[in-house]
């Protein structure tokens, strides 16, 4: 393989990894605060694409306005899902909330079929994002560069929010101990809502960039990225934001490299994520950045 070709694959892998990272953060943050695997997260991602699509193609808004509206609506949807399907179950066993999450996932998929139709639609083409540029002999869509940059900026903003603001402090406290946080005057429900909002915003930004990169949207398109990003979060150590980012990049780059070096295994590209999941669960179940879980008596 020529070096140029390798670079081409690498940039592709990095931008795919960035998208995985953005979506994986939503899983990891919700897990951190509620110990819940939010199976509906993939569908939140899918909905963001439809919101973006409708804004541009049906309501003929300019793409930038439409995308901002889509991000806002996705955040709203994420928070509504939490209020409707998870909040009433706060005191229930974890398995109950998880079943509820799976229910929401199916519900949103089918809702999308009813509302938007089952046939795939074409995501609007934004020239500014999709134009092909050339550096040396490596040519790529502008998007391939934009995606990692946007991702990195968002990640730093998120890490700042979580580690240096009062809201972030509340989020970390709630993730450790709801009851004590409440005793300290923290509004636990509000903190959880904010967490869902942030996770959904990141999924929406990832979703819109996903749509620009792979411009075909369908009601079931959230399933595979959702599963893979969940795996990315587990690989990185679920509950840990930096871990989710690392996991996302490992998954994205790994997947593309598999295709690059073993082209006859291209059909198995989705299997890569699951093999990685099995390997991680066997050899390092807490994930790369995960803390050891020690029960203190």
């Amino acid at each position: 393989m020529s070096f140029e070709l390798f670079l081409q694959y690498l940039t592709n892998g990095i931008s795919l990894g960035s998208l995985y990272a953005l979506i994986a953060i939503g899983y990891t943050m919700v897990y951190g605060i509620l110990k819940l695997i939010n199976f509906a997260h993939g569908e939140i991602f899918m909905m963001s694409l439809y919101f973006g699509f409708y804004g541009v193609s049906v309501f003929s808004m300019p793409w930038y306005i439409s995308f901002i509206v889509a991000i806002g609506m996705t955040a709203l949807l994420g928070m509504m899902v939490e209020r409707a399907a998870y909040k009433p179950l706060r005191e229930s066993p974890r398995i109950t909330i998880m079943v509820s999450a799976i229910g929401v996932s199916f519900f949103l998929q089918n809702l999308a079929i009813v509302l938007f139709g089952g046939r795939p639609k074409a995501f609007p083409n934004v020239r500014l994002l999709t134009e092909v540029m050339q550096i040396g002999s490596v040519s790529f869509q502008r998007l391939t560069m934009i995606i990692p940059i946007v991702t990195v900026v968002l990640l730093f903003a998120l890490l700042y929010l979580v580690n240096n603001t009062k809201t972030g402090m509340a989020m970390r406290a709630v993730s450790k101990d709801h009851e004590t946080a409440r005793l300290m005057g923290v509004d636990v429900n509000r903190t959880i809502t904010i967490t869902f909002g942030i996770g959904s915003i990141l999924a929406a930004i990832g979703g819109i960039m996903w749509g620009a990169k792979f411009p075909q949207i369908a009601p079931f398109m959230g399933v595979m990225p959702g599963l893979k990003c969940f795996i990315a979060a587990v690989v990185g150590g679920i509950g840990n934001i930096t871990g989710a980012i690392i996991g996302g990049f490992i998954l994205g780059i790994g997947e593309i490299m598999l295709i690059a070096f073993l082209p006859n295994l291209t059909g198995y590209r989705d299997a890569f994520a699951f093999i990685l999941l099995i390997a991680i669960l066997l050899f390092r179940p807490t994930g790369i950045m995960g803390e050891k879980i020690s029960e203190k008596v």
Binding site: M169, A173, K176, M184, G185
Partner: peptide
């Protein structure tokens, strides 16, 4: 029930959260 994942300073600050 201190918040083990927060620093000592943050634990004190969260006491003054409101």
């Amino acid at each position: 029930r201190v918040f083990g994942n927060l620093t000592v300073l943050e634990n004190l600050k969260i006491g003054a959260f409101y």
